[in-house]
């Protein structure tokens, strides 16, 4: 933390950081500034586009109003339900994968590190690919539609849920586990009655949190053709029907807020 310089008490001077730490911090700030300056200098911005941005934005909002309310029952309602189905089914599929992979990644449950490493690799691979990219891949496999979207949500979520679940398992107390081991309980009983009650609240709150994120993410899947409300938005945008886009955006807004409120309420009951 601090560098205590040698010498008598009188000459000793308290310095907060060692010279190396100071150089590193300075280097960090320098790199940050350099990166931003480089970006600002080289980025391609077309100034003509910026001059009329206020006018364009005004035009955007003017054309959004009044909203085309008739579009809601026609195209939005069904797509909205589909979005929720994609998010929910995707989360459920992800839980089915994340439970075993999370267990394999926990060092205290599986004390064999090559397996931990393989499980962690699966989790990292799942997280490093964006939901939209997973969607593109699954469209290549299953063709456009909600099935591709559901699988994309599931594959992206495995990494998130599995990682947090594995960490929760690693943090669980050894007491109940040792007590069960002493009774000669089977491995399955030790997991079910020793670990699971400890990590259950964490598991459900992770799952709910991910469901909330997935509702948000599944709303954009349609832009690449993976089903849900994004398809309705894409259609309306391609036709420049901004009054219909406004309906879609409001519907997404309401659903996202409702999902967040629902998650908060359920979490309060569960934990």
């Amino acid at each position: 933390m601090s560098a205590a310089l040698p010498g008598t008490a009188a000459e000793r001077e308290w310095v907060r950081h060692t010279p190396e730490q100071r150089i590193l911090r300075f280097g960090f700030y320098f790199v940050c500034v350099a990166a931003v300056v480089w970006s600002l200098k080289t980025i391609e911005i077309i100034p003509e586009f910026l001059y009329d941005a206020p006018a364009q934005l005004k035009d955007f909002f003017v054309r959004m109003w009044p909203m085309d309310a008739a579009y809601y029952p026609k195209s939005v309602h069904g797509a909205l339900i589909e979005t929720l189905n994609i998010a929910t089914l995707g989360t459920l599929i992800c839980l089915a994968f994340a439970l075993p992979v999370g267990i394999l990644s926990a060092r205290n449950l599986v004390p064999f590190w090559p397996i931990n490493l393989a499980a962690k690799f699966v989790l990292v691979a799942s997280r490093s690919v964006n939901t939209l990219v997973w969607a593109l891949l699954f469209i290549g496999i299953f063709g456009p539609g909600a099935l591709a979207g559901t699988m994309a949500i599931a594959f992206r979520s495995v990494g998130f849920v599995g990682k947090l679940f594995g960490e929760a398992l690693e943090e669980s107390h050894r007491g109940p586990v040792e007590a069960l081991t002493a009774t000669g309980a089977s491995k399955a009983s030790i997991f079910l009655k020793g670990y699971w009650p400890q990590v259950k609240p964490a598991f459900w709150s992770i799952a709910l949190f991910r469901w909330d994120i997935n509702v948000r993410e599944s709303a954009v899947l349609g832009l690449v053709g993976a089903g849900g409300i994004g398809m309705a938005m894409d259609t309306a945008m391609n036709l420049f029907r901004w009054d219909q886009v406004a309906v879609v955006l409001s519907a997404v807004f309401v659903v996202v807020i409702a999902a967040e409120v629902a998650v908060t309420l359920i979490r309060r009951r569960l934990i």
Binding site: V220, L223, L249, V252, V256
Partner: peptide, 10 residues
Amino acid sequence: SFHEVVVAII
């Protein structure tokens, strides 16, 4: 409440 991609469209 909106995904980055939706904001990007706007």
